[in-house]
Amino acid sequence: MVEAKRTPLYEEHLSAKAKLIDFGGWEMPVQYAGVIDEHHAVRTKAGLFDVSHMGEVDVRGEEALAFVQMLITNDAGKLEDGKILYSPMCYPNGGIVDDLLVYRYDPQHFFLVVNASNTDKDYAWMLEQAKNFKVVVENVSDKYAQLALQGPLSESILQRITKVNLAQIKYYSFTHGQIDGVECLISRTGYTGEDGFEIYFSPEYGRQLWRKILEAGASDGVQPIGLGARDTLRFEARLPLYGNELGAEITPLEAGLGIFVKLDKAEFIGKEVLQAQKEQGVPRKLVGLEMIERGIARSHYPLQKDGQEIGFVTSGSFSPTLNKNIALGLIRAELAVQGEILDVMIRGKAVKAKIIPSLFYKRG
């Protein structure tokens, strides 16, 4: 049995009486005060996440830009220094290896942030593709811990312990500076649908920064947030999760990520298949669902129409913000019609759901 990995904040989670679970080979907090309470804290105030399990890959060299362009579906050529790009990364068949954030320092230096459970697989894939480019690709995950402070009060709380002018960091931009005397990469990004920051730093300072941020935000009700609320928050904002909305058998176009697929740029892995799919129409579409009968649609439950299986649930849960049971489902494209009634098969029983717009929550 492989021993689960732990972040530098493991002892802090224990002292906060977090409930811990295995997540992609990591022992991580799923909740502290409770998922719904934590969810509302992020939507209304601010919450602090330990996301030190995420993977980081450094790309350097004279052909770094060309390499990144080949690797991802989005257009890194339009990315300015100090800016960040979200993109799927595809196999030649158009299926998704992973989705990632691309940080651009300059045309010869990029910093890629990948999903925790995919880090080793992604790194191996990148090394294989790098053979044709003058680049050095390095897995630097062990050199970084990461915290995410998310919610409408994030900026005011973090500003109390840094001299960096956080208001000048625009959405999907990053800078370097000290927080409580610790050198950090600070980016205005997140995975909750709220404003916030993701902070990267040397793992030895993990407990110091965790405690300092909670202390700085104590008067505003900031609290630690587990993976349970992280999932309901990202789900309401229609932010995809690898293994649910994304996977090796799902293309970015099927997952509704066409805006991040730039077919007008030069060659990239999977372009030919995605171009054909765009021209011919996708066979499946991701749709929003609202349960109209009692029940919660869980990930991978079958979806049926008139007794015929037409797809499956990718994510589903009770929505604390909307106070109703909702889901996302990948179904046959011709049936993806607003107002259509489908059956969610919950333990063999058909439970009715209605197709609704899939962006369940948008701040402001």
Rank of each mutant, 00 (worst) to 15 (best):
A4E: 07
R6F: 12
T7F: 11
E11T: 14
E12K: 00
E12D: 12
E12Q: 06
H13T: 10
A16G: 02
D22P: 02
G25R: 14
Y32D: 07
V35E: 07
E38T: 11
A41D: 11
G47R: 01
G47K: 00
G47D: 11
L48K: 02
L48Q: 07
G55H: 04
V57F: 10
D58L: 03
V68K: 00
L71F: 10
I72P: 00
T73L: 04
T73M: 06
D75R: 01
E80F: 04
G82Y: 07
L85H: 08
S87R: 03
P88C: 02
N93D: 14
G94S: 08
G95C: 06
I96R: 01
D98W: 03
L100M: 13
V102C: 03
V102I: 14
Y105Q: 05
N118M: 04
Y123W: 11
A124E: 04
E128M: 03
K131Q: 13
N132S: 09
F133A: 02
V136L: 09
V136A: 04
V136C: 03
N139K: 03
E155M: 10
L158C: 05
T162C: 05
T162W: 12
T162E: 12
K163V: 08
N165M: 06
N165Q: 13
Y172G: 00
Y172V: 00
Y172P: 00
T175V: 10
I179G: 00
D180S: 05
D180E: 13
G181S: 10
C184M: 05
R188W: 14
R188T: 00
T189S: 09
T192V: 07
D195P: 01
F197V: 04
I199C: 02
Y200F: 15
P203M: 09
E204H: 14
G206Q: 05
L209Y: 11
W210N: 01
I213L: 08
A218S: 09
S219H: 13
G221Y: 13
V222T: 03
Q223W: 15
G226K: 06
G226M: 08
L227R: 08
G228C: 05
R230P: 02
D231A: 05
L233K: 11
L233Q: 07
E236D: 15
A237G: 06
A237W: 15
R238N: 15
L239G: 03
L239K: 10
L239V: 14
P240G: 02
P240R: 09
G243F: 14
N244E: 11
E245I: 04
L246Q: 08
G258M: 09
I259H: 13
F260H: 15
F260G: 02
K265N: 14
E267N: 08
F268L: 12
K271E: 06
P283F: 13
R284A: 02
R284L: 11
R284F: 10
K285V: 04
V287M: 06
R294H: 15
R294Q: 13
G295S: 03
A297D: 01
R298P: 00
S299P: 02
Y301R: 06
K305Y: 15
K305Q: 13
Q308W: 15
Q308R: 14
I310F: 15
G311N: 03
G311P: 04
T314E: 01
G316P: 00
S317E: 14
S317C: 01
T321C: 01
L322R: 08
N325Y: 12
L330H: 04
A333R: 11
E340D: 05
I341A: 02
D343V: 05
G348R: 09
A350N: 09
V351L: 02
A353L: 11
I355L: 10
L359F: 13
K362L: 13
